[in-house]
């Protein structure tokens, strides 16, 4: 079998096709580190998760340290149970405070970890005890409006 010009063209075609896939993988998408490496599971209960979704980020000091894997409703206690998959490289103290934050004013919601001072670390499958629910913007605005209204009444 001898080489032909056709082989060259097919080779060229396959090469730029694969280059396009590589471009999509590296430049356009993120080969997420959390999904490929070692992980451990954590859980947390929230009164209100707001707009949190599966695959939302978990950040500590602004660095992504894990992802939300599942969100369930606990009908016994009327709270949301969020399961998280954490990067095994990072361990957190047992009194870590989990809050639901929003990136920017109307951006995506994520779970923020505020690290506590406990010397014992959270083990795989454990439940985070201290949590704070999502801030509902509408509630905040209505509270602000009510406060303003009552203040102006006092002045009169």
């Amino acid at each position: 079998m001898n080489r032909t010009a056709l082989d060259l063209w097919v080779g060229f075609f396959v090469a730029i096709g694969l280059a396009a896939v590589l471009f999509l993988a590296l430049k356009v998408g993120n080969l997420s580190a959390a999904s490929s490496g070692e992980t451990y599971a954590l859980q947390a209960k929230f009164d209100n998760i707001g707009g949190l979704k599966i695959r939302s980020a978990i950040k500590s000091s602004g660095v992504v340290v894990g992802r939300v894997t599942n969100i369930e409703y606990d009908p016994a206690n009327y709270v949301a149970v969020v399961s998280m998959q954490m990067d095994a490289r990072y361990k957190f103290p047992r009194d870590t405070f989990a809050t639901i934050n929003t990136s920017g004013l109307l951006g995506d919601q994520f779970i923020g970890f505020e690290v506590g001072g406990d010397s014992e670390m959270l083990k795989a499958g454990e439940l985070i005890k201290k949590t704070q629910s999502a801030v509902v913007l509408e509630k905040l605005i209505s509270q602000f409006m009510f406060n303003q209204a009552s203040e102006s009444k006092d002045k009169k």
């Binding site: 896939v21 999509l24 993988a25 430049k27 356009v28 998408g29 993120n30 080969l31 997420s32 999904s35 695959r55």
Partner: peptide, 19 residues
């Protein structure tokens, strides 16, 4: 333009599904 794109597009969820 690029960083928001990279933060949102997931390799397995979006690109592999497209392929």
């Amino acid at each position: 333009f690029w960083s928001q794109m990279q933060a949102t597009v997931d390799f397995r969820e979006d690109i592999v599904n497209g392929i």
